[in-house]
Design a protein around this nucleic acid. Structure first.
Lengths: 215, 215
DNA sequence: CGCCTAGTTGATATACATCAACTAATGTGG
DNA sequence: CCACATTAGTTGATGTATATCAACTAGGCG
């Protein structure tokens, strides 16, 4: 069997940070703190570092030649970001709120480290899930899946999603417009599947129904 | 620098097959031949093998809970497929035409092998590109990018794309319907950017214009 | 030759985008 | 602390790209 994942275990990655350091070959520095909107790395930067979020939330995006933006992901405490292929980064990363990250330099052979491999496979899996959403789901399904995904990663037992990102960020992540995202959220509320507590805090009332929307 | 790619070099992967065998830890069998439409692996199969296409073309797909299909990729000679996260495969693979593949068993530590790592990163990069297409492009841009991508991988200097897959396959790869794909191809022809030679053979008349459609 | 599947083309429906106005929340300087 | 500016979010009216439904056409194959 190729892959053993444990990256979903919230917080585990942080605890492993020290462990990683002892595994050999992986250097690490201390925590870096970023204020809201701060750039963590830019498009064109040398790739070769990966990051673990210690607290806060990081947005990773990419701009196309035509100037459109794709938000490739949002990353919360315990999650990894910054894996890229090629020498130069195609994506850029920003803190969405006051956040802390820890950086690891990879210099070539660290994929042998099962922790690193797990992270990489976790990343691969999440991209694949994203692809499935963009390739097959309509607006309300996308937004529902997004909310469930966020809630599941925030330790609240999946019942609540705090949204540090704007409607526009969500839209650029889901391949929609911000108006469509807003209307989809509204419709989910009318369907009694969620309750909004202010614009950026969502209670999920029926997780199963949210995921089953498409079926 | 994390990643050195050479997986784009057509045919290189095949020649490396022997090399891989000597690197230690990676077992390989001989070539398996598959007739048209033959299943190479199924959803639910144990993951842990990867495959290199020796000749022909392989389609990898995934079915959602709602029964919709996403074609995650088409793979030609020299390309790798079958990387998956998790113990069980989420995707299934089929030969689109008479094809040959070579299987490699990965049993845990082979990511240290730079050839394997290159393949994995190549795969990661192609998924990322796919994501960008699905997230930001409209129908005609998607089809144009698809045709250029196919042509670039077929050794004809990028001037010609042979299409072993149906319009429906293309549609399910691009998140469109087959009718929309057909109309987009028609429009590209009217725009004098391509010429159809039968339904499944396309001459690319202006590669740059095809890629610039969105700008 | 005629069946069968793949592909094209047309008419219509619809989901989402676009454009615009309005409202709520957040911050700033006097 | 209030007035105002600024940004984020919502809601409505309308436009448009794509999906859907349907008929027709062209290749392959027995």
């Amino acid at each position: 069997m190729l892959i053993q994942r444990d990256f979903r275990n919230p917080g585990a990655a942080i605890e492993e940070a020290g462990y990683l350091g002892f595994q050999g070959g992986v250097k690490f520095g201390g925590t870096t703190r970023h204020r809201e909107k701060e750039l963590i790395y830019a498009q064109g930067d040398e790739s070769g570092d990966i990051f673990i979020v210690e607290f806060g939330c990081v947005r990773v995006s990419r701009i196309t030649l035509e100037g459109r933006r794709l938000v490739t992901g949002f990353h919360f405490a315990g999650e990894v970001f910054g894996f890229e292929t090629g020498a130069e980064r195609q994506c850029y990363a920003e803190a969405l709120e006051y956040s802390g990250t820890r950086k690891f330099h990879l210099d070539g052979r660290e994929l042998a480290n099962p922790r690193i491999a797990d992270m990489l496979f976790g990343h691969l899996e999440s991209i694949h899930e994203h692809l499935l959403v963009l390739g097959t789901q309509n607006a309300i399904e996308r937004v529902a899946a997004f909310l469930v995904g966020i809630a599941d990663r925030q330790g609240s037992g999946g019942a609540r999603a705090r949204l540090p990102m704007s409607r526009c960020d969500i839209a650029d992540h889901l391949g929609l417009t911000l108006e469509t995202v807003s209307r989809a959220i509204h419709r989910l509320q009318v369907l009694k599947l969620i309750t909004l507590v202010g614009a950026r805090d969502v209670l999920l009332l029926d997780r199963k129904a949210l995921l089953d929307l498409g079926a």
